[in-house]
C-alpha cells in the first residue's frame, strides 16, 4: 500500500507542479489545488506508463481521490 503511495508522490508533485505537495490516502481533487480535469488526464497517463496498467474510461471519473486510486491499482496490478 505505502509502496504505491510512495511511488505516486513524485508523480503528483511533478504533474501538479507543486514540489511541496504531500499526498495521503485522504487526498482528493477537492482538497488538492490544481487537480483539475486536465491534470487528471496527465496523472492517469503517467501512472499508466509508470505502473504498466490501463484504466478503463468509466473508471477515471471515480478516481478523484488517492485512496480509491490505490485500491483500484492494487486490483489491476494483481492481474
Amino acid at each position: 500500500m505505502n509502496e504505491i503511495l510512495d511511488r505516486l508522490q513524485p508523480i503528483f508533485r511533478e504533474v501538479l507542479e507543486n514540489d511541496d505537495l504531500v499526498i495521503t490516502e485522504m487526498s482528493s481533487a477537492k482538497n488538492i489545488e490544481n487537480w483539475d480535469s486536465l491534470a487528471h488526464i496527465n496523472l492517469v497517463s503517467v501512472i499508466e506508463q509508470e505502473f504498466k496498467i490501463r484504466f478503463a474510461l468509466g473508471e477515471l471519473e471515480t478516481l478523484n481521490n488517492v485512496g480509491d486510486m490505490i485500491e483500484l491499482m492494487k486490483k489491476k496490478m494483481k492481474r
Binding site: S37, L38, I41, V44, S45, L57, G58, L60, E61
Partner: peptide, 21 residues
C-alpha cells in the same frame, strides 16, 4: 463529455501539453 469524449481524445495525444489539452 469529460469521460467519453475529452479523455480518449486527450489520451491519444502524447505528450499532452497544456495547449493541446
Amino acid at each position: 463529455i469529460t469521460t467519453y469524449l475529452y479523455t480518449p481524445m486527450a489520451r491519444s495525444v502524447r505528450p499532452l501539453t497544456f495547449g493541446k489539452a
